[in-house]
């Protein structure tokens, strides 16, 4: 499988971090950066990554299905809205944000909009407890999120399209 040049470069950079006999270490980073670059993890990618790090595809699948940020076989949307409802956010309005997002987007947990643009996930603690409630859209953190702010963020996503 041919990878986009930038991703290919990232692959070399990541694999280069580990002693050659332990290049299997690159497995999770390769998958995560591939998912970011390609938008999804496909069986072809699984085979490719397996080949790159010298393991069986099953070993990639074992790892792939373990980590919650890796979405396989179903990809998430271009904008993945992650709303934390864990305890600190729970106390400060996280569940209300979650309800609102569900309603606004017409999506449930790990559902993707028909056009593939937006997906929604109720996530576990994202490490923003002191600035709760917090959400992440892709890798961007948003702290002290109010319903109004969430509305605005979701509106922006639609416009970004």
């Amino acid at each position: 499988m041919t990878l986009p040049q930038e991703l290919e470069q990232k692959f070399s950079e990541i694999i280069g971090k580990y002693p050659p006999e332990y290049k299997k270490s690159a497995l999770v980073p390769l998958l995560l950066y591939s998912q970011d670059a390609l938008g999804k993890i496909t069986p072809e990618l699984v085979n490719e990554v397996a080949r790159r790090v010298g393991v069986f595809p099953l070993q990639v699948e074992e790892v792939l299905t373990y980590y919650s940020m890796l979405h396989f076989p179903k990809p998430m949307g271009k904008y993945h809205v992650q709303i934390c409802t864990n305890v600190s956010c729970q106390l400060t309005g996280g569940p209300e944000l979650w309800e609102l997002a569900c309603k606004r987007l017409g999506l449930g947990h790990k559902e993707v909009s028909a056009d593939g643009l937006i997906s929604l996930e109720e996530v576990e603690c994202i490490g923003a407890c002191s600035w709760a409630p917090a959400i992440q859209i892709n890798y961007d953190f948003h702290h002290f999120v109010t319903p109004e702010k969430l509305d605005e963020l979701l509106d922006n996503l639609r416009q970004l399209q």
Binding site: F56, L58, Q59, E61, E62, L64, Y66
Partner: peptide, 8 residues
């Protein structure tokens, strides 16, 4: 090596 563990 034909068997593995998936999901968590």
């Amino acid at each position: 090596n034909a068997l593995g563990v998936v999901q968590r």
